[in-house]
């Protein structure tokens, strides 16, 4: 009974929460699914690609632009734009670096699938603990590490006001929630057009469908792989900024949960399928939010990973099917 009452009472509020969270999952999920599309590899270090962008947001909002109270109008747009750009670049380059250091050497020697997975987990943990140790008190091979993040959580100033702007069915919406949805939708439309309508997108789809034939058409597979990591990384970077706007803190292991939930979303939508990742992210966010309404907030993770297990058991190809990039 508690469940039904919870759902009825919180329906519109949780719809709002689910869409907002789901939009962030969707953007991270794109990186998992694109990399899987071209390499049939789950890049478990993708969580850290996201984390790097929250750290850029921390510095941008707190230090570069010295935000102390919520911004509005043109100032807000400008600050967001000049945070999104470096964050997307930093995340994109992190993803490319992971490809170069953790995966390309294995590809060159045609290593078995399992090696890539182990390498991914190694890369993920290395990056997490590197940020954990970068507190100004540690050294790596006698070189002192700079003070970037450290072990403690860091508060990110509010750039967008959390004051309600309007209500839908009695549920207030604030600018943070609207911004997350607006930026996510815009980014996903741009990505979809890029993949479907441009020559670069055709190259990505061709490598995903048949790499050998793509190379016979003049496509450089290595270049497409780098671009795929770069684009997927940039999307996770934008997600990191949105997450920072909405949740106002970062930490060395902040990527872990959103990361594996986005992976769940990618599987739910059909791994390798870009529109699937978008749909899967949104659905997972909603399921999690309604599940919380039905139970209690501490059940959120149980619900999400329950979805992962259920999808893998009953529909392992996901909703839209695997690898339908085209």
């Amino acid at each position: 009974m508690r469940c039904a009452n919870g759902l009825i009472d919180q329906f519109w509020a949780q719809t709002r929460n689910g869409i907002t969270l789901g939009a962030i999952y969707a953007m991270i999920a794109i990186g998992y699914t694109m990399v899987y599309g071209v390499l049939q590899l789950i890049n478990f270090a993708h969580s850290e690609v996201f984390m790097v962008a929250t750290v850029v947001s921390l510095y941008a909002f707190r230090d570069w632009y010295g935000v102390t109270e919520p911004l509005t109008g043109g100032t807000l747009l400008l600050v967001l734009l000049i945070t999104l750009i470096p964050a997307m670049i930093a995340s994109g380059l992190t993803a490319v670096a992971i490809e170069r250091l953790a995966y390309r050497p294995l590809r060159r020697r045609r290593a078995p699938r399992l090696s890539f997975l182990i390498s991914a987990i190694g890369a993920s943990l290395s990056i997490q603990y590197l940020f954990n140790l970068m507190d100004g008190n540690h050294s790596l091979l006698f070189i002192p590490l700079p003070n970037v993040l450290g072990a403690a959580p860091q508060e990110i100033p509010d750039v967008v006001s959390s004051k309600p702007l309007f209500s839908i069915f009695g549920t207030p919406w604030n600018g943070q929630q609207l911004l997350v949805i607006a930026v996510a939708v815009l980014m996903m439309i741009i990505l979809d057009l890029l993949v479907r309508r441009t020559k670069l997108g055709r190259g990505i789809r061709a490598v995903a469908q048949d790499p050998e034939t793509a190379s016979l058409m003049g496509v450089s597979i290595d270049r497409i792989i780098v671009v795929t990591f770069l684009i997927g990384g940039a999307m996770a970077g934008a997600a990191g900024v949105l997450y920072s706007v909405r949740f106002h803190f970062t930490q060395w292991n902040i990527g872990f949960l959103p990361g594996i939930k986005a992976f769940t979303a990618a599987v739910l939508g059909g791994i390798g399928n870009i529109r699937g990742a978008m749909l899967g992210g949104l659905l997972l966010g909603m399921v999690e939010a309604y599940g919380v309404a039905c139970t209690a907030p501490q059940w959120a993770d149980v619900i999400s990973f329950g979805v992962l297990v259920a999808v893998l058991m009953f529909r392992p190809t996901g909703i839209l099917g695997e690898r339908g990039v085209a």
Binding site: R202, R205, A206, Q209, D210, T213, A214, G218, A326
Partner: peptide, 29 residues
């Protein structure tokens, strides 16, 4: 390929989820 040698592979190897037009565009990639 860029030098002007093109192989039409055994078993045709059409990109199944691209349109005919896109397949031809791939040829000129």
């Amino acid at each position: 390929v860029a030098l002007g040698v093109c192989q039409v592979p055994e078993g045709r190897k059409i990109f199944p989820r691209m349109t005919v037009y896109e397949n031809l565009e791939m040829g000129a990639y």
